[in-house]
Design a protein around this nucleic acid. Sequence first.
DNA 1: CGTAGATGGTAGACGTATCAACCATATCTA
DNA 2: TAGATATGGTTGATACGTCTACCATCTACG
Lengths: 175, 175
Amino acid sequence: MTVQQPSASPRPAELDAWRSYTTVHAQLAAHLARELTRATGLSEADHQILDVLLDAPGARMRALELRWALQWEKSRLSHQIARMSTRGLLERDACTEDARGWDIILTAAGREAAARARRVREESVRRFVLETLGAERLAHFAEAAALLADRLNRAAEEDPDCRAARAAVYADGSG
Amino acid sequence: MTVQQPSASPRPAELDAWRSYTTVHAQLAAHLARELTRATGLSEADHQILDVLLDAPGARMRALELRWALQWEKSRLSHQIARMSTRGLLERDACTEDARGWDIILTAAGREAAARARRVREESVRRFVLETLGAERLAHFAEAAALLADRLNRAAEEDPDCRAARAAVYADGSG
DNA sequence: CGTAGATGGTAGACGTATCAACCATATCTA
DNA sequence: TAGATATGGTTGATACGTCTACCATCTACG
């Protein structure tokens, strides 16, 4: 019979699932970012950098390592660090092992902001994500994320021009 | 005994799961956006607008409806529409039902770009997401997204100041 | 050694996202 | 009907992300 639908497209259900998923994800991310900003004055990007540095020995880390941890482009990191250091959250220091590189260090203010931001974010994630999905579903998410990370790494190998996923991705769930 | 770990924090596993998930999601999104841009010259934002309009009757829709569908802030949509109309992808037309509003219409070029972008994106999602996760796991994603959407709507009701999720969210999986 | 290529990081330009302030129209209420 | 308030949309400032080009240093290989 092949009933042709008037104007609606015959979109596969899977793609609709993907679309609704991405929409909700964007909203959730926006909401969490807004909560963070209201509570701490920090942007999402600020928080990500601070949070990684907070766990680094001596609150110090090479820019390169930061890039690996966050999977950011080098230009993005460079700009972000420049902005944050003018705000006194971190400092650059010469890197001994490679004269091209820099060590990034949390200032006292940065350390405090990082700790505060972490608390706020943990609270938000607990309240919005954990409570809603439960630990089990969240674990499924992480599992799926690991699969996708593998896929991205494979793509990066096949197409070296694709910088999206060049280094190993932090998604194996074991730190 | 209480063996205190040297410098590593006692982060709950769930929060690590969340972090690795968000990192991978960001990477995947970046990768898909890059594929789209390379193939069509369109940004992710362009694509989202075009894709919604493509299914609208007459390829015409009120800006307000676009905002609902995409869950964007009005300022964001306004800027984006301004940019896209200078590129000839869409046009504004007076709205008959409310003199404050505007109808947004795809131009011929916009319609073509929208169709092309949709094909490219579907290809990418199929190749990266569907193939990797499988339909079942993706359905779980959509299901989880629906839960999160409910949670966001609830938050929006409780706190009217939170514009993040004011209107109904497209996440019930049934269009 | 010395040169060629790769790599860490920076700089500027441009597109994009958010916030706050604003204008015009709509709606509600006295 | 008039005034108060809410709402659709625009504007400008600012922060953010990406791209391209670039500089300095490192590494390989002659």
